[in-house]
Design a protein around this nucleic acid. Structure first.
Lengths: 237, 237
DNA sequence: AGCAAAATTTGATCCAGATCACAGAAATGT
DNA sequence: ACATTTCTGTGATCTGGATCAAATTTTGCT
């Protein structure tokens, strides 16, 4: 195999994308180069439906750049967001390991660059690199734990606090005056993530603001002034 | 290794237990015999706490016989059941693949026979039998799908219908007059599984009964008279 | 079988969050 | 910068399910 060529040839891009993906983190460079040959890169504009609920996924898809949401729609059309995916996350495992249909839509929230690894190639990769299977198990088990945790939290205020903290961790920048968080979703999106009405979220956030805990700056940024105040009221670990 | 001895020596029991466990389903007999040596069997009476939330699991535990519940407790003491485990299910993967603390209690609903496979042994087994990792991925991905599906179902009636159907599949016996389902949980348990109040469940079941769709026979059995009536109102696959 | 304890059902009331309606603010395009 | 459109906040009202309080049924035990 040719060595790295120093500019943006396909192989270099592949390596770039793969190195930031936890699933492949255990691999050495030559292995990465080999696997890179199987990966199909594809770009999608914001708003694309990458996967429709009910379809049968024939590839595992790994996010190189951008954000996506996985969501389900109730009969009355109400959206329930199940996951937010970012760089390094993957989806489509349903179709590959069970013969299951995708249980949610996946939609690009921004322009995205995705890496597809098709069924037969993926199976070959797994044969050669059993460590990858362990990474996938770890990732799925973390994802399970995060869903399981949602169950305990019956209390809405606690769930909102927890989500704000999660956003703060993932998207926040610490500055004088608090943590500035660029929200990945609109108010409506956040409400759909929490499974509540937009108006209810509005009221709850207003309450937090009048308590001096947060401050909203336009529609897309929130300043968290008292992160500690959000730590209480959470369900047990 | 000695060959099968025809009566209930430890090795035979091990094989018995292992053969009905999907995770090991891909293995041939000699492999099973080898792995059986690692497995620690242990019996627990009904009501035992097998695992406490917050503990660090150091083994994967596979259910040989019996039923268990995995549950979390809110601050006010309210129980939320997250999973019902039966024969062939496993738990404890959190501790082994991530350094995560167990997010729920696991309690025996009946007398149970469990198979423990400790961390280092399990890792050795996975090294030798990469197929097992794939089985585990498949199982976790099914478990994820079932949690993900719960999210969409905001409608309580639909969730109850779905649970009744699930119980019917797992525990029901078809007879003249309908499907007779031996419930694995009390009304209170079912309510905690659904995350609602016992009284609410009571009322909903009474409604179903006066609609002629189900009939309760004592507290532990339900006769499903019109299974088809439960099929509607469910969220999309 | 009969009795005490436990679980369930039923009724009455309450309340958090949903829904409806609309006003105000922010984002977007020209 | 302005106008249009889209998003967000707030008040008023409604409602499904929670909670409280008995009454009734089921179960388990001797």
């Amino acid at each position: 195999m040719a060595e790295s060529c120093g500019h943006d040839c396909q192989l270099c891009l592949d390596k770039l994308c793969m190195q930031k993906i936890p699933v492949f983190s255990s691999l050495a460079r030559p292995d990465l180069e080999q696997i890179a040959l199987y990966i199909v890169h594809r770009d999608y504009p914001k708003g694309s439906i990458i996967m429709a609920a009910g379809a049968r996924a024939d590839s595992i898809t790994i996010i190189n750049t951008g954000k996506l949401k996985a969501c389900r729609y109730a009969e009355d059309g109400k959206e329930q967001i199940v996951y937010l995916f970012t760089e390094g996350d993957f989806f489509g495992e349903h179709g590959l390991f069970n013969d299951q249909v995708t249980p949610y839509h996946v939609e690009a929230l921004t322009d995205v660059k995705l890496c597809h690894l098709y069924r037969s190639d993926f199976q070959a990769v797994l044969q050669d690199h059993p460590d990858i299977a362990l990474q996938i198990i770890a990732a799925l088990s973390r994802r399970l734990a995060s869903l399981e945790k949602v169950f305990g939290n019956q209390d809405l205020d606690a769930r909102i606090n927890q989500l704000l903290l999660e956003f703060s961790d993932k998207y926040g920048r610490s500055q004088a005056g608090g943590i500035f968080v660029r929200l990945p979703l609109s108010r409506e999106g956040i409400a759909n993530y929490l499974g509540i009405a937009r108006e209810t979220l509005s009221r709850k956030l207003s309450q937090l603001e009048s308590d001096g805990i947060i401050k909203s700056i336009g529609n897309k940024t929130i300043q968290i002034r008292k992160p500690d105040a959000l730590l209480h009221n959470s369900a047990p670990e």
